[in-house]
Design a protein around this nucleic acid. Structure first.
Length: 536
RNA sequence: GGCGGUAUCGUCUAGGGGUUAGGAUACGUGGUUCUCAGCCACGGGACCGGGGUUCGAAUCCCCGUACCGCUACCA
């Protein structure tokens, strides 16, 4: 504890950070948190944030797999200053198109002796590794197949061997650096392997490409997840061997799975679904997605993936605000941040060092708070696409339906927590004979002994009402209750079920007023007809 | 196995040699109400263990323990 953090002078430096997604087809929630911190750090210092595509290993369709990721960044409002689609002075930003730079770097490393051609097969190296492990020794590659001269290389090649390029790592001393989150860090060089930086086929490996690009793109601060902490020495070695100045490093704790300290993974959805709250989050989303006709297979639809939140109608500000506080805090009480406030107050000094598990409940709480803070019209705007997508209103929506939507949103109030929750109220958009009755609620409230006659009488009162506003309706119902000498519960639930099909919902009088007199009467008649049909 | 990291309510966290260890979320109880949601009030809930230093340790040091990460011709 109390480790000194890095103090450095940023006045003369233009801060440049990067996030480097591989084109996998989805944007991982943990990745977003890392990207967010990079973005915030750059914005805070008035610098640039760039996106670089790590596709050195990709034989897939990069464009297709990249699109959802770029869409995700845009949805979250994490605009990049240089990178795919926007380009910039250091283009291209795809590693697959920078082969020349990497080959050049390998050539220089070879020339200076910082790297060597190695003619061992992976099996041979693996055998050495096994042997060391058996003997409980540290594994250090023998460099048995190292070719230092062209003659040696030719000899190996005559045997039919082909070379990878390995780093000639130091075998004594320590690698030290100051991590901006974790303080001073030390690794023994001798524990480092002679990492491969170029494959047999001549393609570059990650550490080489990354180190070269970070220099080429003038990255000043590499902010990434801790799993890269132990990769740092080899990258510093490459960087320095190339004669470059290494960037500053900051290693963030990773986002852990709900209720655990394990790294959150895209592949373990089944496991997370055993976590009660995570399951609820997923189910709530799946309900909305199903109504939308969205594919909910786990490969594409998972709360681990950012797209999930976009699809079910979360507000990106809520997600970002939640993620910000996962591993970072300003003080002991500030929870809600606007984008400007985040940018203004973010600093690496206040990043936590321990991993933080993803808490679905807290995310939902941020989302609810955010929705509550939005004006009705803003919520209407968010909700409309969901109604359009399900055909509940036409595209584009007409003024009548827009007004109806507004009324429902206003009446539903806090009940609409994510925009997709509007789909809980289809009865306000469907014809009087098209919405469904919840069988259980119907049996309990309408088909129940004595309920129908009361409903019939109250229907007639509604028919005779000159004004059909919520206040008049409330007054009418209370008058009815008093006249009949019944309890309010005996009639109000029956009316709700008859008119909305459900036992639960927002204020009944608001609901009746929204539907209007004609619809209410027709709906009650429909319910009463259904009662007599079952009775006979 | 080796190397590295981390440890405060269930969860996210603030704090930090002497505090009633603070907030948020979740949870419980009560209130408001036509149901649900919300809102209001109240409540229970934490410094991983053991040594050491010290008048005093949750805080500093050491040793354990647990959890996690890395240990690729992946990124």
């Amino acid at each position: 504890m109390g480790l000194p953090r890095g103090h450095y002078n940023l006045r003369e430096m233009s801060v440049r950070t990067r996030f480097a997604p591989s084109p996998t087809g989805y944007l991982h929630i943990g990745g977003v948190r890392t990207a967010l911190f990079n973005w915030l750090f750059a914005r805070h210092h008035g610098g640039q944030f760039l996106l670089r595509i790590d596709d050195t290993d990709a034989d897939r369709n990069v464009a297709e797999a990249l699109q959802p990721i770029l869409d995700g960044f845009r949805w979250l409002g994490l605009e990049w200053d240089e990178g795919p689609e926007v380009d910039g002075p250091h283009a291209p930003y795809y590693q697959s198109r920078r082969g020349e730079r990497y080959r050049d770097a390998v050539g220089r490393l070879l020339e200076s002796g910082a790297a060597y051609r190695d003619y061992a097969t992976s099996e041979e190296v693996e055998a050495e590794r096994e042997e060391a492990q058996q003997a409980k020794r540290r594994f250090i590659y023998s460099r048995r197949f190292m070719a230092e001269t062209d003659a040696q290389a030719a000899a190996f090649e005559a045997e039919g061997r082909r070379a990878v390029v390995r780093l000639r790592m130091p075998r004594e001393g320590v690698c030290q650096f100051e991590d901006l989150v974790r303080g001073p860090v030390e690794f023994e060089w001798a524990l480092e392997q002679d990492h491969v930086i170029q494959r047999v086929d001549g393609s570059p490996l990650y550490h080489l490409a990354s180190s070269v690009d970070d220099h080429d793109f003038e990255i000043t601060h590499v902010i990434r997840a801790v799993e890269h902490l132990s990769n740092t020495p080899r990258q510093m070695f490459i960087t320095e061997a190339l004669g470059y100045t290494p960037p500053r490093f900051a290693h963030l704790p990773y986002v852990a799975a709900p209720g655990s300290k394990e790294k959150l993974s895209k592949r373990k959805l089944d496991k997370y679904l055993q976590h009660h709250e995570f399951k609820r989050l997923h189910e709530q989303g799946a309900g909305i997605a199903t109504a939308l006709g969205v594919d909910v297979r786990p490969e594409t639809f998972s709360p681990v993936v950012v797209d999930f939140y976009r699809q079910v109608g979360y507000d990106p500000e809520a997600l970002v605000n939640y993620l910000l506080l996962l591993g970072w805090s300003l003080d002991d009480h500030t929870e809600t941040f606007t984008r400007d406030e985040m940018v203004r107050s973010f600093s690496l000094e206040r990043v936590n060092r321990a991993e933080a598990s993803f808490d679905p409940q807290k995310l939902l709480a941020f989302q609810e708070r955010r929705m509550q803070a939005l004006a009705v019209d803003e919520r209407v705007h968010k909700v409309l696409p969901f109604l359009e997508q399900t055909g509940l209103v036409a595209t584009p929506v007409d003024e009548v339906k827009r007004a109806r939507t507004r009324s429902v949103v206003e009446a539903a109030g806090d009940r609409i927590k994510v925009a997709g929750d509007i789909l809980e109220y289809p009865e306000f958009f469907l014809d009087d004979d098209a919405f469904e009755y919840d069988a259980k609620a119907f049996a309990k409230r309408v088909a129940k002994e004595g309920a129908a006659p009361l409903l019939q009488q109250f229907r007639n009162r509604l028919r005779d009402l000159p004004e059909f506003g919520a206040a008049e309706l409330e007054q009418a119902l209370h008058a009815f209750v008093e006249a009949e000498g019944i309890k309010i519960g005996q009639i109000i639930h029956a009316v709700r079920v008859a008119v909305t099909g459900k036992g639960v919902g927002f204020g009944l009088f608001e609901g009746l007023a929204i539907l209007g007199q004609g619809a209410c009467l027709r709906r009650i008649d429909r319910a009463l007809a259904q009662v007599s049909a079952t009775e006979s």
